[in-house]
Design a protein around this nucleic acid. Structure first.
Lengths: 196, 196
DNA sequence: CTGAAACATGAACCAGTATTCAACTAGTAT
DNA sequence: ATACTAGTTGAATACTGGTTCATGTTTCAG
């Protein structure tokens, strides 16, 4: 088993501390330069305790990816769903995503790096988002809100947009106004570039 | 110096062979699992010869990123410029990019991984593309082809779309028709999602 | 209280691999 | 021909850092 479940309260605390410490360490140093010893130290635990809960460096990394994947979806999805229609939801979703990225830069890096450390986890993350996204596009089409088109392609295109905007205006640049970026992006998605 | 210039024809051949071998090795195994010894073997050279031309593993990786960054731009940019207008150029550009990715999956992976191995190189790659992209959008706006809007944001958004479509329909999925994907994406960029 | 299971500890181990280096060969200019 | 420079070689080195493990401590059910 990659991750061993603790049986006491003390164990749960240590496990939680290790996960939090790992998020910081991986986020700051990247997978390669992150060290088990440093993760343990950050968590106020010994190296041996690390191996009480995780089989390997990769195991804790995968656990983190799953954890964050869930966090992103649980943060953004409700915001989109709360909107009155798909297109206004778009803007709210992008803004929510940008704010999330700002507050969790480390986590964002980790998901990106999973493309190389744990490709299957990475793929699963984006495929599950794309699936939900495509489904909601189909629904919006049914409601007459959006035009006909290849929803799979659209879902991936919009996801890529979000990810790059998150990188550029969330991780790299702290000053840009998330709402303004989201507005420009949402307008692109809704109306396209063509002059009217 | 990170990369030492050869002084003879023989040296240039070896350097070239090492770069090609490194592209294969990094592409197949990723930065971490790639080995200098294996790169040298693939190139038909000795380990020592590797260090005749490159200071370190990271040095050859950076050299590759720069090399590929150039290749991508030199492949896609002319296709876009050859188009009669910005919007039809968009579709041609996406299709060209998808085809490029298919033919150079390894290279594509390397640029992506540079985000973690050589963040400055990664940033430089996308910033230089975004810059050219934004400039051409401004020009298209001047020509009355596209609407007003934040060109920086648009450039990054469209770049992100391309990258994700490249990943999903270029690297992961060989079967999808690049032209069809490009058409759907270009239509999204030009017209947006809104039903008319 | 008591014993067993869960948990904690960190020095030591060891595998993998980037890098060095001293001896050698090929090429070239004078 | 000679000498000098560029290029080649791969075993040995050096070092990093993930993982193991024997020993000690805490928790808690009965």
């Amino acid at each position: 088993m990659a991750v061993k479940a603790p049986r006491t309260e003390r164990g749960r605390r240590t496990l939680r501390a290790l996960l939090d410490a790992a998020a910081e360490e991986f986020g700051e140093s990247g997978y390669h330069d992150a060290g088990i010893a440093r993760i343990a130290t950050r968590a106020g635990a010994a190296i041996g305790s690390f191996y009480t809960y995780f089989d390997s460096k990769e195991a804790i990394f995968r656990a983190l990816v799953a954890d964050m994947s869930r966090q992103v979806r649980e943060t953004v999805a409700p915001v989109i769903l709360a909107a009155p229609d798909r297109l206004s939801g778009e803007q709210a979703g992008i803004a929510a995503f940008l704010r999330f990225v700002r507050q969790h830069k480390a986590l964002y890096r980790i998901i990106d790096e999973s493309a190389f450390v744990a490709p299957d986890a990475y793929r699963h993350h984006y495929e599950s988002i794309a699936e939900g996204y495509a489904a909601s596009l189909v629904q919006a089409f049914g409601a007459g809100e959006i035009s006909e088109g290849a929803m799979q392609v659209r879902a991936w295109a919009i996801m890529g947009m979000n990810v790059f905007l998150g990188l550029r205006f969330g991780v790299w640049d702290d000053d840009a106004d998330p709402e303004a970026v989201a507005a420009a992006a949402a307008e692109l998605i809704s109306e396209g570039l063509r002059a009217r």
